[in-house]
Amino acid sequence: MMSTLVASKAMLLRDLRRSIRRSQDLAQSLIFFVIVITLLALAIGPDDQIFTTIAPAGVWIAILLATTINLERMFLSDYQDGTIELLLLSSASLPALVAAKIGAHWLTNACPQILMAVIVGAVLGLKTDVLVALGLSLLLGSPILSLIGGVASALTVGLRGGALLLSLIILPLYMPTLIFGTAAITNAALGLPIEAELFFLSGVAVLSASLAPFGAAAALRIRLS
């Protein structure tokens, strides 16, 4: 038990340190996110009213796409250099190690994206209530994306056509999160309460947190068997 805790903590710190040293990856995903928002604005035209209505949906779609693109990296380098094999051989529990990896991925990929989304929202002139709803829905929704994404990432690690295959598998599974995330923001814009959506997102987040590490661990074992 103790060794598992120590090992997961070490795993988490290692992944965090590695992402910080490779900050280029992080910058790329943020730039991608901003570009998608810009594309949306260009496609809609310079009408502020329409854009403010569509912005929440646009931000969520941009987050989904940026997350999906990032997911491939979750296990890829460890798969290529053989680290995953060592994790499988380790005496520490594999789901705990995988959970640490997913946690590190969430901290280094999702958190900056949420911050960026709120900044972009503020720049685009969303109201404070809407910004709060945007931030909260992303804060509760993005762990779901990383967790379910972890399973899909483990299933497709090292396969040819990885990124496209991954998005094909993962995007249908993301739809409930998208529905409730955007519903919270829409409600906030209409001045309606948003608790129900946030509770739903928290519920699914807890469900994913309790199941996904086991799924991802099983997936890694299968892929490397």
Partner: peptide, 18 residues
């Protein structure tokens, strides 16, 4: 099989959320 099981957990959630 793992993907199908994840999908099975997801189907009721999809149904009610939609």
């Amino acid at each position: 099989a793992i993907l199908a099981l994840v999908g099975t957990v997801n189907i009721p959630i999809v149904h009610y959320s939609v």
